[in-house]
Design a protein around this nucleic acid. Sequence first.
DNA 1: AAGGATTGCAACCGCGGATGA
DNA 2: ATCATCCGCGGTTGCAATCCT
Length: 273
Amino acid sequence: MGRSPCCSSDDANLKKGPWTPEEDEKLLGYINTHGHGNWKTLPKHAGLNRCGKSCRLRWANYLRPDIKRGRFSEEEERLIINLHSTLGNKFNGFDLILYGWSKIATYLPGRTDNEIKNFWNTHIRKKLLNMGLDPNNHKPRTDLNHLLNLTQLICAAQLGSLMNPWDSSALKVQADAAQLLQNLIQTLNTNQLSTTTAGLMGSQNSYPYEGLIHGTSSLYADEPAPVPQKFHSISQGVIDNSWASFEGYEIPDMSDFLISELVSESPETLLLP
DNA sequence: AAGGATTGCAACCGCGGATGA
DNA sequence: ATCATCCGCGGTTGCAATCCT
């Protein structure tokens, strides 16, 4: 049957775009005295040249008195990631992933679903991607583009070390490359594990970042996790370095052995066609 | 200082569920 | 059972602010 647009063609002269303080005042005043009632008829009663949907959105995302503004706290960020991993990974039988921003918003008083969605897309999503994690399922990425990123990062890291080993940007790409390598190693281990322990241990149990999702990682501990002075092995160093990179801790200089020992090939041989 | 690129956020759009006639 | 309407959701866009070269 389909559905007609919220604002029909005869409403073409309705105002769109940013709200003015005068419009806000009208909407706020009307809702405070009458309640919002029917959103469709509200604009006419409130003397606004807007469609009801626009009014509802403005109220819900901006004018509501209980809205908490400002930066998200670390606690809120952790909660969002946690909730996204639990509420956001429900399969409906057709491999479609259902995200419930509004559901997540109910756990964060004063935050709107739109605000949380924006925060996810602009901050958390990038953090997870930088760690080589798939934001959709919170697991290490294994796609081909990801591998291409790895080679590029390694090239950049080697080039950076040659030019100025103390350059912070060189350290950053090395940390990123280390994270990608770690994820690949983890993925390989996971695959091996799942083939040898099939039936006993699902792949979900091999999820390396469980602590992040369930809030048990030192990443979100009250006190910053100390950056290890010594690394038990290169791989351990890679792991610790990745956590430090994620949280923004100062990354110890591992440029002498980290990338160069893990990757013996020259940058040219690593470039994909 | 200028202008192009990037980022962050408010707002819009289209879809589908819920509800009532 | 069918249809019309309302409401709310998630994805996307547009633009101002900020950053970078």
